[in-house]
Structure formats: structure tokens, C-alpha cells
Design a protein around this nucleic acid. Structure first.
Lengths: 191, 191, 191, 191
DNA sequence: TATGAATGAGGATTCATTCAT
DNA sequence: AATGAATGAATCCTCATTCAT
């Protein structure tokens, strides 16, 4: 399972799913990429769909893992938590644009059951973000905004980044996360 | 072109593309939905891909149209423009969730050339948003933020709405747009 | 039947069948060419195949007609008959390259029964040629060659012309028929 | 490529293309003939059209090969060359009537580009024939005929043979080639 | 005469997956 | 572990023809 070859296949799949999309990527394409015959691939993978599932699952799990770390850390204010959450998320997205794209754009192609699993993990991620905001409001750090909508709003914003971020652009992940943190904390109004 | 039947087909396609995705929707599915033979469909459409193209094009054009109206209106402050832009966008998204989903999720399945056309219109939309923010900064209405990134951020946020909005939920489009406007103008920090 | 429109359709069909081949020509193509709707065409034609049949039949009939004239003319020697046959055939081919092409290249696409009709007429044509040669041999005008093979040989030669003849080339039908007559009468050997 | 199965498919295709024509032969027909599923065929072939292309190419190449051999052989007079050319051509046609039919009748169904390739090879073949005649004229072996037209004439004649030759008929390829050589060298006139 | 909607069968091709070797 | 032949279902699309208006 965790063999070298499997990781190779995984990488090829991420790359191809991102570039061409899940449906437009054939098992043959993946086989070609790793220098194997189509049939041989099935020694390593269960199915094309399962490959997608593994990738999506890995990605959302890592997002959740990061967020749980942040919430566990008792020494942080919620303002710091939010800032860190944004930074971590954007760092992950920018360092793993392809994988993030697979999660955010392609997971929908999973069968219903599999897709639900990913959906649940995604909901959980949203809940963790909501929690930070709720805590911040309770602590008087944040204004009494609608926590869930705010979480959805921020997440939408930073998820969207996979759509335009290009490696080697002018802005680093840090730059971007500063801009986003600023925006969501202060807004753009000139006071 | 604008025949009754074509609109019927269009509606069926929007519905199916949204529910199952473009690739998972067969021409047969669409034909079944409108009660026509598969072959008969081709009296109205050029190809399945063209159908997708028409839908995506219609959608992004309407987004652009709205935004151009706003920019043309000289009696508005840029603060008002931004507010209106958010409101219009969200109203369109919530009133046409399926169509918006087709634009935002499925347009990627278009062939390269067609996709580029949509991409260009999408870029144009981004530029119009950027313009509002730049003007607002110049006029001293907004803080000197990074206009383009801010536009991307807000657009990401409100585009994301198609992913979670359900008709008949507690929040109306107006409610949501008020929350979003607030957020992007003032941020959440408690000052 | 013999209406103006039918002739128009006939001309369009000849042109298209020659240019693209019978199978690659759709009824739509023909309709477009005459500025009619596909359905309207069926007021004039029975079927696409029948259209082909009419064309092939007309062509081979005219070939046969010419040849019968020649044989009926008692004042001709068989040498003259052969010369005239070659000339007439080549004049017809060069003046009606498209129609000849349809006969010689596309008639094969007819259904078995229809094709047999054309085949029979073609066989008849061969017989008429054979007759001229046989008569010429009997009369001592020609050497005692194998009449049928010789007829096939000459016919092959002059039928082939539709494959390379281009209107407006250097050689006229008369030029070509002189060269061919010469060749088949005298051969190329230098004596 | 040169696998057993591919040759089997090739043979089935030749047979079917000859019998029914390229267009009237479905991939299903070919699959049935070799006892494979339609889809399985695509392990061996690229497309139906490519199959046709391979066959046409093989055939015209062999014609050209034969002719080049003849021209290379310095010990032959041009009279002998012409005789040999006719004999070789007819032997090939009669031994491979089906394949020759595919070349001469069906190659036209190739797409433009592919067809041009075959056309070019066919033109080359014509040039080789023209060369023999030109050389013969220069050497005083042949009368000063129009070399190209003469080549076209002879080639037309012997190509036509695929249209009437039936295996097991009275005349062998040798018989036929003797008759044709005679005809083209001496003509039919009784002197 | 002309339309154009509708048919329904047929066609080439793709593709994920299986399995004997 | 690897192959590659084979499957069989699915997919998009074309097209000659019919027919009500």
C-alpha cells in the first residue's frame, strides 16, 4: 500500500487530475506517466475512483489536522488562532495546489457514498473554523458576527485561491495570508 | 434558437449538470428529461459541449452585465458600488444556484478554446471588481489595500456560496449580502 | 419528375457525389446546395440511393446509346467504328467528368439489385465493344486478337481517364482520343 | 504490430472492404469476422480509417517496389522492362485482387491527408512507368508517343483488371499479360 | 410545395476493469 | 510484480426518412 510505486502513482494521479480533470484522465494516462501497463496499475490501486478518494481524503485530513492543532493550543488568543488558521490553510494550498485542486474541484466526481465521507470531513473543517470565531466573539475579541456565515465566507475566500495561485508569482503564501488576515479582521473601510 | 424546446432542453441540462455533473450526465439523460429521442436533441443543440458552453456563457455574461451597470452609474459612491455588487452577485447566485454551479464547477470541462472564452469573461469580471476597489481607494473611501487580491478575496467568498446555499434556508440573499458587505467593509475585529 | 427542381437536385448530387463520394455526402448537403430543407427534398426524390441510381443509369445509358448508333451505321468500317467509339467515349467522359465519376466510382454503393441493373448495362456496353472488334477481325481489319480482353483493355484505359482528366488541361478530348486510337491500333513498338 | 491477430484483422478487413466496400463495412463486421468484441479490436488497430490506410499503403508500396526493381536492372531493354512491368503488375493484381480492389476502389474514402499520401505514391508509380516509356523512345525501341499519356493508358488498362478478373477463370495472369503486352506493343491493326 | 420536428437505428470509439500467463 | 489481451457497456453523434402542418 505505502510502497514506493503507490506514491509514484499517487503523484501522477494528482498531477493529471489537476491538469485534465478526473474524468478526462484515463487509467491509461496514469499508467503511461508511471511507466506501467494499464493492467499492472491494478496491483497497486483498487480503482480509479478509490485513487481519487485517497487523494481527497488525505488532503482534507491534513486541513483538519492543522486546524485541530490550532484549537488545542491553549496559549493562543482567538485572534491569533484565526490568523494562524488563515496562514496554515494558505500555506498548504500554495504548497499543494495540485492536491488542493483535486480536493476542491474533483471530489465531486466521487460516488455518492465516498463523496459523503469527504463532505463530512469538510463540514467538520467548517465547524472548527466556526468554533474559533464563536470563541473569539465570546471572548470579546471579535464583533458579534454570524459565526457560521463568517467562517463560510473566509473559507470560500481562501479556498478560491487554488483557482488563481500560480507558483513563482510575486506574492508568497505569507504575503497573501497577511493580506487576507487584514481584510477579514479590519475590512477595507477607511475610518 | 430561442424556441420553447431549446429552453426546455437548456433547463434540463442545467438541472442535470448541477445534480450529476457534466461528465456524468449523458445526452440520453437530457433527452429523457425533455421526452425526446437522443437523436432528436440534435435538432436543437450542436453538441453536449456546446450546450455547456451556452449555459456558462449566459451566466458569466449576466454577471458582467450587472457589474457594468453598477460602474456606469455615476451617482454612486464606490462604497455603494461595492455593496451593490455584492448584493447583485449574491442575488443572482441564490436565484440561479444551478446555473451558477454549472458556470463555476463545470465550465472547466469545456475544451481548451471554449474554456478560454469563459476564462476571459471571468477575468473581465474580476477586473470590474478590481476597478471598484481601486476607485474607492483613490477616493479615500477604502483603505489602500491590494485591490486585485481584495477583489479575488471577495469574489472567492461570494462565489463559494453556490456550494452551501440551499433554497428555503433561513437566510435570504439580502441577509447574506448584508453580512458579507459588513464583513468586507468592517472586518470582524472588535475595536 | 423532370421538373426544374429535380434537375437542380440532380446537378447538386452529381457534384457532391463526385467531390465527396456518395457515402460522405449527406442528404443535408444536397438540400443545402439547392437551398431546400432536407424534408422538402423528398418531394422530388425517392431516396438518396435512387438519386444515385438515376445518375448512374443515365450515364451508362448514354454510353450505350452512343455505341449503338455507331454499330447501326452501316457505312463505317470497323476501324472507323473503333476510332469513333473511342472518341465518343472520351468526349463524353471529358464533358461529363463528374457524372462519369459517379457512374464508375460510386455505382458500387448501390444496393445489390440496383447495382446489378447497372452492371448489366455495363456488360452490354462491353459486348458492343467486343462486337466491333470481332467484326473487325472477321473483316480482316484487325489482327486475330482476343476480342473480349481487347475490349476490356481499351475500356479500362478510357474509363480510367476520369481519374486524371482535369478540365482546362493542355489536351482536348480530341487530342486524347487520337493518342488512344493510335496506341490501340498501332501499339508503341518502333518498327 | 506484426502480431498474428493483426494479420488476421487485416485479412478480414481486406475481404470485407472488397466485398461490401469500406463504408458499408462496420467495425462490428470486422470484429465478428475475427471473433473478437468490437472494443477488443482497438488493441490492434488505431481506427477503421487507419486500417484502410495500412492496406492501401502496403499495396501501392509493393507496386512501387516491383517497378523500382525493374528500372534498376541494367541488363534489360526497355521493351523487356515494359513487358515485365505489365506482367508483374498483373500478377500482383490477380494474386491479390481483394487488396488491389481496396487500393484502387476504396482509398478514395480516406481522409484528405491520408489520401494524399496514397495519391503521391500512386503518382510516383505513374512516373516510373512514364520513365520506362521515355527511355524506350530515347533508345529508339518505341515510337515517339506521348509518354505520360501512354503510361496512363496502359496503367488504366491493367488497373481495370481488378474489376473483372475472377480467380479460377480460363485465363492466367501470364495469359493476360501476354495479351496486354502484345496489344500495347503492336496494336490491333492488321498490317 | 415546403417546412422542420421527430425518429430510431446504427456507427466509431473509449475506457475501467479482469484475468490467465 | 507485470503484462497485455479481452471484455462489454457506455458515449456522443449522424443520418436517411417520415409526417403533420
Amino acid at each position: 500500500m505505502a510502497s514506493n510505486k503507490y506514491e509514484e502513482i499517487t503523484k501522477a494521479a494528482v498531477m493529471l487530475f489537476e491538469r485534465k480533470g478526473y474524468h478526462a484522465t484515463s487509467v491509461q494516462d496514469i499508467a503511461d506517466e508511471v511507466g506501467l501497463q494499464k493492467g499492472s496499475l491494478y496491483h497497486y490501486i483498487t480503482s480509479k475512483e478509490d485513487l481519487l478518494m485517497q487523494l481527497a481524503h488525505r488532503s482534507i485530513s491534513e486541513f483538519n489536522g492543522q486546524m485541530e492543532e490550532i484549537l488545542k493550543n491553549a496559549s493562543l488568543t482567538n485572534r491569533e488562532r484565526l490568523h494562524l488558521a488563515i496562514e496554515n490553510h494558505l500555506k498548504y494550498v500554495t504548497k499543494n495546489v495540485q492536491l488542493t485542486t483535486v480536493l476542491l474541484r474533483e471530489a465531486f466526481s466521487l460516488g455518492e457514498d465516498q463523496h459523503q465521507v469527504i463532505q463530512d470531513l469538510t463540514d467538520k473543517y467548517l465547524n472548527l473554523w466556526t468554533q474559533v470565531i464563536e470563541q473569539g466573539i465570546a471572548a470579546g475579541e471579535f464583533r458579534p458576527v454570524h459565526a457560521r456565515i463568517t467562517a463560510l465566507s473566509i473559507l470560500g475566500s481562501i479556498n478560491w485561491v487554488y483557482r488563481w495561485y500560480k507558483e513563482g508569482g510575486k506574492l508568497t503564501a505569507s504575503d497573501i495570508s497577511k493580506l487576507y488576515s487584514d481584510l477579514f479582521l479590519d475590512g477595507i473601510e477607511n475610518r
